[in-house]
């Protein structure tokens, strides 16, 4: 990888045992199988604070997650570092993670949220709904070349 290329971290998260909640890991697993140089891929059930030092080792982080709402099959939006307290979960938000990485690990990583629209979030079960599979394919088609080119966004 040329020294000038951005080091990209792809964090796909969600629970594959909860149907379409597994969209984030499914996206990440597919990208991991493609083995794109300079792109580090991690999956987890949820974002966690210890992801902050990992983010700090990269220039760009893409958070891939399922969403229950939103326009179209997926959205890609910038993430701002910001603080917030979660209610009682052990997960942290994308913005809080960026802020922790910035404040404690001197990170300057820019963040992007890839939100893939899911449909079936009720109950336990593995496998994505047909809608989620189609949306996943659309997200992969859009983002894979950008990851390969190390340019997540047209302006970035």
């Amino acid at each position: 990888m040329p020294a000038s290329q951005a080091r990209i971290l792809l964090l796909g998260y969600g629970n594959p045992g909860r149907r379409d909640d597994g969209l984030g890991p499914a996206f990440a697993d597919t990208i991991a199988r493609r083995g794109i140089e300079g792109v580090t891929v991690e999956t987890d059930y949820q974002l966690q604070v210890e992801d902050a030092p990992l983010i700090a080792e990269h220039d760009v982080v893409v958070f891939a997650d399922a969403t229950v709402q939103g326009p179209g099959p997926f959205t890609l939006t910038p993430v701002e570092a910001r603080g917030e307290i979660s209610f009682t979960t052990h997960s942290v938000s994308q913005g809080a993670l960026l802020a922790l990485a910035r404040d404690h690990f001197q990170s300057k990583a820019e963040g992007w949220a890839l939100a893939i629209h899911g449909q079936d979030f009720d109950g336990f079960g593995e496998g994505l709904s047909a809608t989620a599979q189609a949306n996943l394919a659309a997200a992969l088609e859009f983002l894979t070349p950008r990851l390969e080119q190390h340019r997540i966004h047209d302006g970035a």
Binding site: G14, D20, V68, Q69, S86, F87, T88, T89, A113
Partner: peptide
């Protein structure tokens, strides 16, 4: 109590409380 409310889906757009 540190309850486990988020064992499950955490997809965007859900209100935690």
């Amino acid at each position: 109590y540190d309850p486990c409310l988020s064992c499950a889906t955490h997809a965007m757009g859900r209100m935690p409380l």
